[in-house]
Design a protein around this nucleic acid. Sequence first.
DNA 1: ATGAAAGCGCTAACAT
DNA 2: ATGTTAGCGCTTTCAT
Lengths: 335, 335
Amino acid sequence: MSQTDRAPTIRDVARHARVGVATVSRVLNDSPRVSEEARQRVRRVIAQLGYRRSSTARNLARGRTQTIGVVAPFFTTPSVLERLRGMVEGLNRHVEYDLMLFDVETVQQRADAFRRFARRDRVDGLLIVSLCPSETEATGLVSEGIPVVLVDAAHPDFPHMVIDDALGGKMATEHLLTRGHRRIAFIGDTTSPLGFTSSEQRRLGMRRALREAGVDPRPGLELRAPHGREPARELGIALLSRPDPPTAIFAASDVQAMGALEAASAMDARVPEDIAVIGFDDIEAAAAVGLTTIRQPLRESGLRAVDLLLQALDGYEERLSLKLEPLRVLPRRTT
Amino acid sequence: MSQTDRAPTIRDVARHARVGVATVSRVLNDSPRVSEEARQRVRRVIAQLGYRRSSTARNLARGRTQTIGVVAPFFTTPSVLERLRGMVEGLNRHVEYDLMLFDVETVQQRADAFRRFARRDRVDGLLIVSLCPSETEATGLVSEGIPVVLVDAAHPDFPHMVIDDALGGKMATEHLLTRGHRRIAFIGDTTSPLGFTSSEQRRLGMRRALREAGVDPRPGLELRAPHGREPARELGIALLSRPDPPTAIFAASDVQAMGALEAASAMDARVPEDIAVIGFDDIEAAAAVGLTTIRQPLRESGLRAVDLLLQALDGYEERLSLKLEPLRVLPRRTT
DNA sequence: ATGAAAGCGCTAACAT
DNA sequence: ATGTTAGCGCTTTCAT
């Protein structure tokens, strides 16, 4: 080590290369206003010294962070992770940004997340998944000037990426109807404190399909529980224990559908003969168990959200068709 | 707005509160060396101005980042995400750190990740999952002085959190043996370019159990494919199509076990009567399909890794028992 | 094309 | 207890 122990700075490089720091900075930033000779010299010194510029210092000077934040209830359901996967993929195509995670599983954490991270000096842009910012939060975001893209949530102030949940519910129900089912049950989420609404929308879509088919809805067959496999299993057992059990179950998510499947197995009901089950999302596990479901473009939604955000950030262009792949029924072995 | 439009800085606060910036800084950092009166005044002004300190500037001045990075092949298998979940939980108990994600799915990305993020000015500490740093990378990390904790990977230079994969494989096989199986097949990963080794270790454990039970190993029944449900399914079909099919399959991961289950279903083989299946990991989906498996403490490993790292970072103390919950067989419906 | 110098907003030594 | 000031390592005018 000819140098002292601390990491070399732009100054060290400048000195060794016998140029000013500005020139080094220009080389670092690929500015054309540098003579080829100087550029070579600087590059060589950088290599020799093993210099790497400090992103912190750079960020401070430029007033940017080069990181985008993702706020989401990551572990509430696998579908959020699948969206995250899309985001990571999308971001990997534009290496300049880092990804910061803000997990929000409770109302408290949600408030914290916005207070702490909805700031220009924390992130250049924000991806918010399955969470709708409150009016105050939205106002803060806007006045702070932070580009935001919402995924699986909608708000008039921000671009968002949503599917037609009601339509999905309708499609699922129609699928069941076509198969001849008339006594159709619904298993969905209880209204969560974080205010997810898709489960309810899907139920409404189911209602619509029923109505259009001239089938009387049976509110007694519409059950709700906190999201999760286990609670859904309980619901399924309750359903199958009735004197007049349904012949089919529409679960508002694949996770809940898996619970319903477990219930069937516990009650020795054959699927789909005794009880048909259709889910929603098409997560990995759905394919694994042969669960019929409504496929929604999870990964794609993440990917596109990133594109949208990057565009807002860098004027980055692409064929932003904004339309996601449409929902569709994926018939498998449970219906 | 009495102020100009740009965000207030520590200077603005100092001026309004008629104190020096150092005092404001002290208040910000909860230093005791501030008179109660000054403290109040500063606090009031901060509230009035809506001042929030810039973490970038702070980080530059302090030479820290307050973020910990996680390098991992997040989407290769659900088990990594389950570990991440543990990390997020662990970190949420110590709000001062942010979480940065570095996804590594290919060798190229892996090299990039280390080059870009193994730096003091990017992260204060690193959590590396299912990836073993090369010698060069390890040396870099050490000389850079970055605290590192390895999860599901081992290296002499760093504390690590690993399970005894061979033991797990042995346990799984013994379980099968106890159930009377003698023709036991293995489905595992092909050696990945990223160098995961647990699959192979588990196979070795299986061999050991077989040997100890006096059962001849049948190399012909040990199949490998890239990680994933689909490839494992193919392998399962190949296995079941043999003139002398196995009576049981030990899959090196639950994901692959699910593939085996699909194969059974495709071949109309009853589980566990015609073919028993045992997996490894105990991911969510395993419980959902009633898959017998070897449970390893996934979430816990993430949690503990964070504890370990935080300790290295802050001298943060706790009952660091370092021992993870032991592996155990979780008998369900597939054996 | 290049360099000097003024920030970016904070922390921490040092002085008082 | 408090203020002054010199960094932290970079970007970016502004001269030249």
